[in-house]
Amino acid sequence: MNIRLWYLTHKWTSLLCTIFLLMLCLTGLPLIFHEEIEHFSGVVEAPLMAADTPDASLDAIVTAAKQARPNDVIQFMFWDAEEHPHITQVSMSERMDTPPDEFKTVLLDSRTANILDVPPPDKGFMYIMLKLHTDMFAGLPGTLFLGLMGLLFVAAVVSGIVLYQPFMRKLDFGTVRKEKSQRLKWLDVHNLIGIVTIVWVLVVGITGSINTLSQIIIAIWQQDQMAEMLQPYKNLPPPTSTGSLEKAMQTARQAVPDMHPSFVAFPGSMFSSPHHYTIFMKGNTPLTSRLLKPALIDTTTSELTDTRDMPWYVKTLLLSQPLHFGDYGGLPLKMLWTLFDMFAIVVLGSGLYLWWGRRKHTDKRISELEQLHLDFAVDLKEPK
């Protein structure tokens, strides 16, 4: 592919995705610090107790949650020991097939089974930022559209790398021609910041595109591995009652001793079957804590039905999520992610400025070849 085709690729992929990428960068800034924002906004925390205080029975927590919302059913139960220690989050709704946006939450103390809070559905600032960033309030079509914009962004970055070499042919690295026109100065800044942040933008762009496929990837897993694990129960009538969650958890811990629970999908919910508690376990290291391993526990007998490592495509999704938001290395990494995010905003904004300036101020006497030289210095003649 010659320089002109690379230039056209860079131009049009950039133009098509820039506005949406700016929106993603702006909404992504508060999402990087969502845990810290939650703490400052007054999210309830568990009271201080002795470090060796034992946890309450999960059956007691189930009973307390049902008392808090007697007309709802429990779909999921979550734990996040790092960000919210000693708190059990229970997601409830009117029906087992209720979509995630309509979940109602009950927060309980894991040690006493006391109810800490029954917050209303979150529709505040962080909810708006998350929805804009993930699907623009358009559901799966919006998510897939943003994934396409992410792929166009990756194409724009790759074509920009190709064009950078001829642009720098007669310039030292990092040169910003302050003595030239305002547009040329911004062109140099645009290219310099773009090449310096190239690894980060590729990582964030690729992982972001992978994340937009999460619903499709999970659906494939449900139709593939999950269906195979549930095959022995396919034609059995649903049980009339469910057994002890505490016993199911003990079975899961024994079956997967080197991991600890991340969340439970209750019988009949989207990640389980009417016959099972599906307990998703996670590892204890920075890497394995991002990976999940389901353990299917029969609700009637509390015995293990099956447990398997997730397939490669689900592991790819699970590992791409923390890379995208930079939330696996503590506050220093979040600060670095914020800095790179702001650099990306400058690159995207300067790209729009350069395009608009060209449309507004291009001299009609400049030939097409000279115009390419003005933008990317591919001609032998230096721009005046």
Rank of each mutant, 00 (worst) to 15 (best):
H190L: 07
L144K: 01
L184H: 09
T175L: 07
L152Q: 01
L151I: 15
S181H: 09
F153T: 02
G147V: 04
R169M: 08
F145N: 04
L163M: 09
K178I: 09
M168I: 12
L148H: 04
L151G: 08
V162F: 06
F153D: 01
F145P: 02
G160D: 05
T175V: 10
V154P: 07
G150C: 02
S181C: 08
D172L: 10
N191K: 09
F145L: 13
L151S: 05
G150Y: 03
D172A: 13
Y164N: 06
L151V: 14
R169L: 09
L144C: 06
L163R: 01
S159I: 00
G160P: 00
K185Q: 14
K180M: 13
G174S: 07
R183K: 15
A155G: 14
N191Q: 11
G160E: 04
L171P: 06
G150M: 00
L171F: 15
K170H: 14
V157T: 10
G147E: 01
F173E: 10
Q165P: 04
A156M: 10
F153P: 00
L163F: 03
L148K: 04
F173K: 13
A156I: 02
T175F: 04
R177G: 11
V162H: 05
N191W: 01
V189W: 12
K180H: 14
D188W: 02
V189N: 07
A156E: 05
H190S: 08
V176W: 00
K185G: 03
R177I: 07
W186V: 07
A155I: 11
V154G: 07
L171W: 13
M149V: 08
L184Y: 06
V162S: 04
L148Y: 05
E179V: 13
L152D: 03
F153H: 05
D172F: 09
G160S: 09
R183Y: 12
L146W: 05
I161H: 02
E179A: 15
Q165W: 14
V176C: 09
L151T: 11
G174V: 04
Y164G: 00
R183E: 10
L151M: 13
V162R: 04
L151H: 06
D188F: 04
I161M: 13
F153N: 01
N191T: 08
A155R: 03
S159D: 01
R183P: 08
R169H: 12
I161L: 14
L163D: 00
G174I: 02
F173S: 12
K170A: 14
L144N: 06
L151F: 11
V154N: 07
K180C: 08
F173A: 13
M168K: 15
K185R: 15
G160Q: 02
G147Y: 04
V154T: 11
Y164L: 05
D188H: 06
V189M: 12
Q165C: 08
F167K: 09
L152P: 02
Q165V: 13
A155P: 05
I161K: 03
K178A: 12
K178E: 06
D172T: 11
L163Q: 00
K185H: 09
F167I: 04
H190A: 07
L163N: 00
K178L: 13
K180R: 15
S181D: 09
S181T: 15
D172H: 12
K170N: 14
V189A: 11
I161W: 08
V189F: 10
A156Q: 06
M168Q: 15
M149C: 12
V154A: 11
L184P: 03
Q165L: 13
K170G: 08
